[in-house]
Nucleic acid binder design. Sequence first.
DNA 1: ACAAAAGTGTTCATAATACACCCATGT
DNA 2: ACATGGGTGTATTATGAACACTTTTGT
Lengths: 242, 242
Amino acid sequence: MKVKEHLKYASEFHLPNIAVNTVIFSFHKKRLNVLLLKFADTPHFMLPGGLVMKDEDIDDAAMRNLKDRTDLENIYLEQFYTTGKAKYNSEDIVNVFSKQLGDKMVENWLNQRFIRICYYALVDEDKLKPTTKDLFVNEHKWVDAFEHPKLLFNHNIIVEKAILKLQDDLDKKLVEIGENLMSETFTMGELQKLYEAVFQREFTRTNFQRKMLSLNILERLEKKYSGKSHKAPYLYRFKDIQ
Amino acid sequence: MKVKEHLKYASEFHLPNIAVNTVIFSFHKKRLNVLLLKFADTPHFMLPGGLVMKDEDIDDAAMRNLKDRTDLENIYLEQFYTTGKAKYNSEDIVNVFSKQLGDKMVENWLNQRFIRICYYALVDEDKLKPTTKDLFVNEHKWVDAFEHPKLLFNHNIIVEKAILKLQDDLDKKLVEIGENLMSETFTMGELQKLYEAVFQREFTRTNFQRKMLSLNILERLEKKYSGKSHKAPYLYRFKDIQ
DNA sequence: ACAAAAGTGTTCATAATACACCCATGT
DNA sequence: ACATGGGTGTATTATGAACACTTTTGT
């Protein structure tokens, strides 16, 4: 049985009771999105995650997992939280999994206790090829980070904590986050849209521009002619050396 | 053999590969201190830590550990980081432990891989009775948080991350942190000393006072006569309801 | 000419800083 | 009286928000 083999493999080479979960963010069409995975044939969604190998750093485990999932390398990753409730699997989750795995499997595997080390990642939605190596996943979707549906396990809370951390980080590490969520060059308007998507509020255009320029991290390039009937905005990129 | 029994006990009731570590802060004589434990008969110090029981939330594990260590309850605890290098035990650490435990024990126990979930705690140094239930610890000391000596494992890095988190939290959660690091009533000067200890910089007295009062979280009480030859300062305490 | 979006300037309010000044207290 | 630490006022400087005005572009 394929599932059985999979689980046996898991128990042999991986640490027990420990998982990494990743909230994968993208910035697309003015929105901050997160990647959700559909569990098997159920209508339920969850966050990508995986186990940690016995001889593997946890950061590497998160990165490997992300590579398996998105086929992207050198992704921006930030750890933000570890959750470890002794019992969090509610009735309905157990039921969902029972149907897929059989009761015995649930008892042996799902009901084992997991400590989840949580990361968030920043990716370019367009570059992502959805690879589905995972046995239990054959579908994924991007959803608005602020309107995620009810997820399996305690994943909703994890998404909310990830958003808070991202908000906190955006000011502190603007260059890194910007470079990973935006294309290499961008207009001031696009950068403002990123801020508005992350903080879920509007900024005054004129003041936002001045604020960003005063940080001295942007390099002004040529103008961008969009073919639209209005003044062409400058393109910017983040300065190389800080 | 006592050590052997101890380790057997640990492996039966606790999760393998997982530990909690706590950086215990106190504010004493104008200084931010951390509690260090001396490992057995060696001259080496380390942070308090312990294992997680199989049916125990990680937050509870940290709290239980703290209770065992300090005999204090309802302590302010904040998780801030999880570290999980696959191999971090350097030669010198292994040597230290070999002498204490014997080579075989080291191989079986110390050399096992640990994922460390890190918390910081805030306590009142004076209320702390050092209980040493731990088999390997019979001495503790408070040291300046910014001048901690070389510690076993990767604990120095953990202390530094704890300080950064505490600094970040002090502004955000001043009431909670203040209530846990200071006595119930305090003068403005004492509060300023706390800030100066945490941020390792000086603040202008007059402006600091105004800043704190403008936050509207302090309640002014009677004056405090210290017997010293100068104007008696007001006492303050944090307002109950926010 | 006009609409739409971008860039710049100016004003006003608020917050941060520096520092002068006076106040209480015990020796 | 004076040294010491505490409290308040005030002037100056940054910082932030609001908004008017000008510029550029394609239709």
